[in-house]
Simulated scan of single mutants.
Amino acid sequence: MSEFLLNTARQTLLLELQEASRLPERLGEDFIRAANAIIHSEGKVIVAGIGKSGHIGKKIAATLASTGTPSFFVHAAEALHGDLGMIEPRDVMLFISYSGTAKELDLIIPNLKDKGAKLLAMTGKLRSPLALAADAVLDISVEREACPMRLAPTSSTVNTLMMGDALAMAVMQARGFNEEDFARSHPAGALGARLLNKVHHLMRTGDALPQVQDNTSVMDAMLELSRTGLGLVAICNAARNVEGVFTDGDLRRWLVGGGNLNAPVVEAMTKGGVTLQAQSRAIDAKEIMMKRKIAAAPVVDENGVLTGAINLQDFYQAGIL
């Protein structure tokens, strides 16, 4: 039984891969027309379908929406009971039907023509009513389904999904949609955390910001170091420009070397040091810290004035790994 199950699974995958391998050679003028219709549309893309086509259509609509194309899915039957009212002349409908003969099309197609909305077809029958009425046809035909009875949609649904992905990716790249655009559609995800967060979103401010003036003693700087627990204290001049940092390591080296706790902290601090820009991306700031092998750093504004401080733990807590 185990070998039978594995053989059936392998045969299914091989059949689906074989059918999918024919898709690239079908891309041509119709694909270009379909992509351009979406790119130049001033409205939205409505994806419609029934049954398995509808399930795949939901995923295609979601992919379009997350990659810069306003899009949503409408069940073909629901479209005939009010949802057609969502469609405007500037919109594009992508209708998925392998047979291209869904009875709902008899009412949907005339309605789209009256509105002036464009119709794109994703079908396996290039002479079907859907294909003949469409402004562009995407061919998802298969020679055989992977189902042993050749009945259950299998190879055809894989083709549908892949053609939808091809369309979405082509449109996305033509529009110059980038990582940050994608992150704005996924602000709660890991990518959103990496690309949308700026240093000023994560940095410590107010009482949590360790800072002393440059005329402070090593003792007072040590107390500030202990109070905040960040691992460093920013040493600033009267204008709050950072002149250096005083770290746990600086304190140990000062004490081991016999330094006086009443001496000015500028004698014990690390001069200059790494400062981060408040408006820079958090992921870029983290990379700087990792490269310089430091656990914390002061944050300054565009004028070099101290505005905050941050350590690696702040990045990790924000999901920037």
Rank of each mutant, 00 (worst) to 15 (best):
A134S: 06
T160C: 11
G28I: 02
I140Y: 00
M219F: 14
N262W: 13
G85Y: 01
A117P: 08
I288Y: 04
N215H: 12
L151R: 04
I109T: 04
R127T: 04
K286S: 06
L255S: 10
F73E: 02
P24F: 08
A79R: 08
A296N: 08
I46L: 07
T205W: 01
A34N: 02
E179A: 14
Q317H: 11
S185L: 14
R22L: 11
G249F: 04
K293A: 06
A208S: 15
F177R: 09
P210V: 04
F315A: 04
A20N: 03
K198H: 15
L195A: 15
L225P: 04
N36I: 12
D165S: 11
P70N: 01
L14E: 07
G259Y: 10
V242L: 12
N215Q: 07
I56D: 00
V266N: 07
K293C: 12
A79I: 09
K198G: 02
T8C: 06
I108C: 11
T160L: 00
E78N: 00
D83E: 06
G116E: 00
K271T: 15
I283S: 14
A35M: 06
S280H: 02
L167A: 09
I109G: 02
A239R: 05
A174I: 15
D301F: 08
R10K: 03
C147K: 05
T247R: 06
D250F: 03
M149A: 03
L112Q: 12
L167C: 11
V212S: 11
V274T: 07
M269I: 07
E145V: 05
Y316C: 02
D139W: 09
F73I: 08
A170K: 12
L255G: 13
N178F: 10
A296L: 07
E88I: 11
A278W: 01
L223M: 15
R184A: 13
K286N: 06
A35H: 05
A131W: 00
V218H: 04
L196A: 07
G308W: 12
R10F: 10
V45N: 15
Q173F: 06
H40N: 02
G164M: 14
G257I: 15
S156I: 02
